[in-house]
Design a protein around this nucleic acid. Structure first.
Length: 343
DNA sequence: TCTGGGGTCCTAGGACCC
DNA sequence: TCTGGGGTCCTAGGACCC
């Protein structure tokens, strides 16, 4: 009677590039690179590259300058946040029309929990609905939990469906390197290699005490559970409650005048204060981030005397945090962050 | 590879208190 | 005052993700 629980992970294909191609059909089939202000000589990185651009080795996170070297004929476009937000909202609205729980994970992805005997059919229906409503293609991962659904999506791209469960976990994942797991990056993978652990299978069988010793009491055992595909976290449909709000800027030319640094911090603090006000909850702590040239990043923060959404108080907090820095070396980036109370 | 912007969570050291 | 042990809070940094 009760149909089994399935988690679907819905992920738009080359989302940002796809939105751009929709409003400029002449770009279809061309290498498109979106990021920064669209000027590849600026300090900025690739937000999304179309599949055609990826053929040239261009990928997200890569400096635009590098992308331009690898693919000089690519069309470079500025990132247009509001346009992507609008497209994303349409997609999420479409998902919510199904009798499912939707957890939004970002502009271009969401988890969907459903109870059905035929998850592939639900996945296809979702793909059709999204394509019909937004003209965007998505891939869907099907899993018996969120972790497996998320990893499954990668095997379904582009525009496909893939199911990853306890049954095929070892066949699909066992021999892959540990960084194939969601939550293991290059740093952790390297530490694991030092322990003689290279593959998912090896991590799953590793000594939990050795892992805890090297990677921490929480993270060590958690990585081992990841390698087994274990995850009992729920799909959460309730609105997301942010823990912090922040603003930061990388300057095209490093700042050398500390008066200018102070002015910029005040500007960022005002923007953050606006975000705090619109959040409707007071901030309890304010932090400042400084990236000195060439690339050393330091942070300092202060607790506020009392929880507040007041612009002047947040400004004063940011300036107090800034005063904690001793170095006056050239500055590449400045950021201001406000933290809300944790409940 | 001359390395964005917006987030989350964990860890570790020192301060402080009993 | 040659000095233990445990708990908690604050702060900075690191890793990861989209």
């Amino acid at each position: 009677m009760d149909a089994p629980r399935w988690v679907l992970h819905v992920d738009l294909d080359q989302f940002i590039a796809a939105v751009e191609v929709l409003r400029r059909p002449e770009l279809k089939g061309q290498p498109v690179v979106v990021g920064g202000s669209g000027d590849p000589t600026q300090r900025a990185v690739v937000a999304t590259a179309s599949y055609e651009a990826r053929e040239f080795g261009v990928h997200s996170g890569m400096p635009l300058r590098t992308a331009a070297k690898r693919c000089p004929d690519a069309v470079f476009l500025p990132a247009d946040g509001p346009a992507y937000e609008a497209a994303s909202a349409q997609v999420m609205e479409t998902l919510r029309e199904f009798p499912v729980v939707v957890e939004v994970m970002g502009w271009d992805e969401a988890f969907v929990e459903t109870h059905t005997d035929d998850p592939e059919s639900v996945a296809r229906e979702i793909q059709d609905a999204v394509r019909e409503r937004t003209r965007l293609a998505c891939s869907v991962g099907i899993g018996d939990n969120k972790l497996r659904a998320k990893l499954a999506t990668g095997f379904g791209k582009p525009a496909g469906v893939f199911r990853l469960t306890e049954d095929n976990w070892w066949d699909v994942m066992g021999d892959r390197t540990t960084d194939a797991l969601w939550g293991i990056g290059t740093k952790t993978a390297r530490k694991l290699t030092d322990l003689g652990i290279h593959t998912v299978k090896e991590l799953a069988a590793a000594d939990p005490y050795a892992l805890a010793d090297r990677l921490g009491p929480t993270m060590g055992p958690w990585f081992r559970r990841l390698a087994r595909g274990a995850d009992n976290s729920p799909v959460v449909g309730t609105p997301y409650v942010p823990r912090s709000r922040s603003r930061e800027t990388t300057f095209q030319q490093n700042l050398t005048d500390w008066d200018v640094v102070r002015t910029e911090i005040v500007g960022l603090a005002r923007r953050v204060a606006e975000d705090v006000r619109s959040e409707g909850r007071p901030a309890v702590r304010v932090g400042v981030k400084v990236r000195f040239a060439p690339f050393r990043t330091l942070t300092r923060s202060v607790g506020l005397p009392a929880p507040t959404s007041d612009v002047a108080a947040i400004e004063a907090g940011a300036l107090a945090a800034l005063e904690k820095f001793e170095s006056r070396r050239p500055v590449r980036l400045l950021g201001v962050r406000a933290e809300f109370e944790t409940t």
